[in-house]
């Protein structure tokens, strides 16, 4: 899995993922949204479930709440030493995204807590407590 985890997105990465990561690195988190204006869709959508038009990337506020989370006690890649916490964040625009919790060692996270996009310097999108 090493090549897929390079800092710079490479050609073998899904182009939508590459673009999300490129913009996230500049401080702008995006979600998929109906090009015809129906609003945000979930990240798995390839067309708008309401009108069938294409979806495109649109910036989001970066604010959200913890919908759920899990703590991994074994490492799966070199960039994420264990333990690390994966948050399933519900963005205030509606979509849910898996991100890495930026705040290990701080107060324990809880479902429902407000969190905010804190960066993606190493190609991994992180959220911290709001």
């Amino acid at each position: 899995m090493g090549s897929r985890l390079d800092d710079e997105p490479t050609k073998d990465v899904n182009p939508v993922v590459s673009e999300i990561l490129r913009r996230a690195k500049t401080g702008e988190l995006c979600c998929l949204s109906c090009a015809a204006g129906c609003g945000a869709t979930d990240y798995a959508a390839r067309i708008c479930p309401l009108c069938g038009k294409p979806v495109e990337l649109r910036p989001v506020s970066g604010r959200g709440r913890i919908h759920s989370y899990s703590v991994f006690h074994a490492p799966f890649n070199s960039k994420l030493p264990a333990p690390y916490t994966v948050l399933l964040v519900e963005l205030e625009e509606g979509p849910r995204l898996a991100v890495v919790f930026d705040g290990e060692g701080g107060p324990p996270q809880k479902v429902g807590d407000a969190v905010v996009f804190s960066g993606a310097d190493d190609g991994i999108v992180r959220f911290s407590m709001a």
């Binding site: 897929r4 993922v17 991994f72 994966v86």
Partner: peptide, 17 residues
Amino acid sequence: IGLDGWDERHGLIGATG
């Protein structure tokens, strides 16, 4: 999540995860 490679990149691995 539905984005190829996204889950692995963010350490969300396996059915257990």
